[in-house]
Amino acid sequence: MSKIRVVHYINQFYGGIGGEEKADYKPEVRTEVVGPGLALTQNFGDEAEIVATIICGDSYFNENTDEALSTILKMVEEHKPDLFIAGPAFNAGRYGMACGAVCKAINEKGIKTVTAMYEENPGLDSFKKDTYILPTGNSAASMRKAAPALAKFAIKLAKGEMTGSADTEGYFPRGIRKNVFVEQRGSTRAVNMLLNKINGKKFTTEYAMPTFDNVEPGKAIKDLSKAKIAIVTSGGIVPKNNPDKVESSSASKYGSYDFTGMNDLTSETFETAHGGYDPVYANDDSDRVVPVDVLRQLEKDGVIGSLHNIFYSTTGNGTSVANSKAFASEFTQDLLSAGVDAVILTST
């Protein structure tokens, strides 16, 4: 039997093109195995081979999604793969979004797709219905575990042997229900579940209720000219030299920075601590992320009542949901006691 033909998608970093300064790299196709593809290949044995690797910058993809997708689709179709693998993306948000979106588009062309990422990657919630997504750790350090799992899963998928449930096959549940024959009928299973529940024993539901954590939109501001506005950012803007040592990724803290009397953030006073995007632009002029200059003008012109003189900043790069929640719940107390009426939150 001939080998399963695989096309592999990776970002500019894993493609060896460069870091954030190359994140605007346009899609390129190479008829060779690159970066994490080597680890996949080692685990394919004789069953599959990567016939082409597509490399695309994370920022380019997310800023030009339609264009990038159409280019990538053409590249993939030229190589007639049996299977398409993207990533693993670990906890890189833009990479995860790209992997998910590419898999979705290729799936729609009738080619099987799989990607892998960390459970908090925004690509998971956005695309888990559209493609198989395997769990990984939150950083490339988990590649050694991720690559064999992904390779094994990919071969099974290509052979049409992916028949078990998400739990048994080891991918994130996609919300797809299948009809299967089981030994006990529904009423028996339901009563058993109930008895287990009453007795405080473990039980597994067959239909998990979705958990919605939507927050009701805050009420509209009636009169902007009386409103106090605060700025919050996940773009990592900090005073020069980062006095609080906010981490460049996976932040464990945030900073509160008083800019009373300042009308402008300059390259002498502020910079970014964020390690997930090219820092050149924000270091040159931090107003590009925390727009103090225009908000001061609007305050002066009476368009807004006042600007809260402290901004709150962390790096949103790989930072856990739990940490982000904790940061915000803490500084929201400050916002409330300072009488802030509305928040502008900027993300890079």
Partner: peptide, 9 residues
């Protein structure tokens, strides 16, 4: 408190 999110993605 109402929030407006300015973001690229």
């Amino acid at each position: 408190i109402p929030v407006v999110h300015i973001c690229t993605v």
